[in-house]
Nucleic acid binder design. Sequence first.
DNA 1: CATTTGTATCGTCATGCCCG
DNA 2: CGGGCATGACGATACAAATG
Length: 101
Amino acid sequence: MWATGDMPAYQIRSPASSLPQAVVVTPSTNNLDNPPMMAEETTRKRELRLFKNREAARECRKKKKEYVKCLENRVAVLENQNKTLIEELKALKDLYCRETD
DNA sequence: CATTTGTATCGTCATGCCCG
DNA sequence: CGGGCATGACGATACAAATG
């Protein structure tokens, strides 16, 4: 997982956040029917799932941030275009007025 | 300086959607 | 269908700035 086996580098924050909170024993996988695969395998699967989802969430947020940045950029571009067009229109109106009187 | 308030980031859970 | 992925929602925590 993490090369060192401890917290990932970016994780400066809470040590508590890595603790599993209120672990719910999934009822369906609850080892009554197949004793051999049990607890160990079950928790292994859970940990794998949590790990994957953690990574997925990270990726998802990164993607979303980029998307928002992109949108903000687009807004800036459009605002500039708008400004330019308004100026252009003003100039043309001006010219037109001059010509008509 | 201690407390409060606002904001960013994270991990987890629930859920919808898609693909085999 | 069932499994896996993407993502919204939520609560916890850390940190910074404001307030008294």
